[in-house]
């Protein structure tokens, strides 16, 4: 069975002023896998995801999704969760859901309800009164309730309490439809997520340092991705 390529980048470059955030990344990601995008702060993870999401345009090179250059058509099939908190403070949890449902073409209310229940979110509470962990949970509901092809999650676990992290990982697994959904998740907390990754891309200074099958990496080096991460970036 030929693997269908979902994401293809060719020689992408992105600069912020004089800072080179992405420096010539070539990558092909097939449909239906979970990819861990790993690297220290400033390695280009967020910029890379933004280029795929179409939030930023590359200064050079091309990004295609499903063979289409990133644009309105691809955005309709991509669910992107930025690292920053993008929820309106004054809305209640229910208002966030209703609002998002009007913005995206592929909202799945049933899936949202399941996740709200599993993640113990209270629909009546205002966003400003949610703890950081609860806000992170709500962000996840907003991202994963779409019927998209590609889910881009930028540091969904960063700075969040362990119980919320655990719930978030379980939610990712429970909703994941193997072969249909592709997830690219950036993190520098590898230990908790490494079991869900099938492929690992290590970024460093805007370039790919390692790009390999997660199991092959472990078998080759006899250690966890977390261990390798510490070794590669020490």
């Amino acid at each position: 069975m030929p693997t269908e390529i979902l994401v293809r980048t060719q020689g992408i470059v992105k600069r912020y002023g004089r800072t080179q955030a992405i420096n010539g990344i070539e990558v092909e990601i097939p449909k239906g896998i979970v990819v861990g995008l790993v690297g220290p702060n400033g390695s280009g993870k967020s910029t890379f995801l933004k280029l795929l999401a179409g939030v930023l345009r590359p200064d050079a090179g091309t990004v295609t999704i499903n063979g289409l250059p990133v644009g309105i058509k691809t955005k309709a099939r991509v669910s992107y969760q930025p690292e920053i908190d993008c929820l309106y403070d004054w809305m209640t949890v229910q208002q966030v859901l209703d609002f998002t449902a009007t913005l995206v073409p592929d909202w799945r209310p049933k899936r949202a309800d399941e996740m709200i229940a599993f993640l113990n979110l209270d629909r009546g509470v205002k966003v400003r009164h949610l703890s950081k962990g609860m806000r992170a949970r709500l962000k996840l509901v907003v991202t994963l309730s779409r019927d998209a092809d590609l889910f881009l999650l930028d540091e969904p676990l960063s700075g969040i309490d362990p119980p919320s992290r655990l719930r978030i990982i379980k939610t990712l697994i429970s909703g994941y439809e193997a072969g249909r959904h592709t997830i690219i998740l950036s993190t520098h907390e590898v230990a908790e997520t490494e079991g869900i990754f099938e492929r690992i891309i290590f970024l460093d200074k805007g370039q790919i340092k390692v790009d390999a099958d997660a199991q092959e990496l472990r078998s080759q080096h006899g250690r966890s991705i977390q261990g390798l991460f510490e070794e590669v970036y020490q």
Binding site: I33, I169, I173, S174, Y176, A178, T193, G195, F197, E198
Partner: peptide, 16 residues
């Protein structure tokens, strides 16, 4: 398979 994937926190493909 999904219960086990969630409990062990691994990819459902691996459990499959």
């Amino acid at each position: 398979q999904r219960e086990l994937a969630e409990a062990a926190r691994v990819n459902p493909n691996t459990v499959q």
